[in-house]
Design a protein around this nucleic acid. Structure first.
Length: 229
DNA sequence: CCATTAAACACCC
DNA sequence: GGGTGTTTAATGG
């Protein structure tokens, strides 16, 4: 059933956390984890649903977001190929607190809750990985609050963009990012027009190049430390 | 004032 | 058909 070129198995074997597992542990992970395709615009997870899986992104682009009763959309962060998410939701009871929506056709790897907890109970290496992941997430969300309250729109866009490239949260992500300016707006809380203006400023500063339906990051450290004026 | 935004429209991929 | 650039009128600090 499982060939060596199976994308799901490759993704599991390439994951940073898999390196610390024993052969038996990895075998159970491979046996338990299933694949799911989510078309662009589809929901990978819904706010309010029970949390049954730890989710890895095989390819595609997802956003963690929510919608207000009035229809206002905010995006917390993006999830790119190679990233795993939902560990926080698995470590507590209760429903999921956010939506996860595919911005492009995406393929997911779903590890059942029981397998995730079994790894926590049996692998110190896995525990360390999850602790680091949680810590990186915490740091990122602290930074997001800082960006939101202290920075103007262009600097906020720069930092929110740079935050996507956290190597723990989105390992091995390409500097060429295919994402619409509207979605960038949801990410940094700005309108489409304002994102367009800010992208041009970042391009002038030599930090990114703007393409049709995407952005390429030229200077990640420059984005991380960008300040207006 | 000034900056920003929604809405509308015309392009362009 | 979705993404993008631009204008215009409305909004709000």
């Amino acid at each position: 059933m499982s060939s060596p070129s199976d994308p799901l198995l490759n993704m599991l074997r390439d994951a940073a956390w898999a390196k610390s597992l024993t052969a038996d542990q990895l075998a159970r992970v491979e046996a338990d984890t299933i694949e799911r395709f989510v078309p662009a615009g589809g929901y990978a997870c819904r706010k309010g649903e029970s949390v049954d899986y730890w989710v890895g992104t095989m390819d595609g682009l997802l956003k963690m977001s929510c919608v207000s009763p009035e229809g206002k959309i905010i995006t917390f962060t993006g999830v790119l190929a190679g990233a795993w998410f939902g560990e926080g939701s698995l470590l507590k009871d209760g429903p999921r607190q956010y939506d996860v929506i595919a911005l492009r056709d995406s393929r997911l790897a779903l590890m059942p809750r029981a397998t995730f907890h079994w790894l926590l109970d049996n692998s110190i290496g896995f525990n360390r990985f999850v602790m680091t992941l949680l810590n990186e997430r915490l740091g990122m969300f602290i930074s997001l609050v800082e960006f939101d309250r202290m920075l103007d729109t262009t600097a906020r866009l720069a930092r929110c963009l740079a935050a996507l490239f956290n190597p723990h949260l989105n390992p091995g992500i390409s500097l060429k990012l295919k994402i619409s300016q509207e979605e960038l707006g949801y990410l940094c809380n700005a309108s489409r027009q304002r994102v367009n203006i800010s992208l041009k400023r970042l391009e002038e500063a030599g930090l990114v190049t703007v393409e049709y339906g995407g952005v390429t990051v030229l200077d990640l450290d420059g984005l991380r430390s960008f300040q207006s004026k």
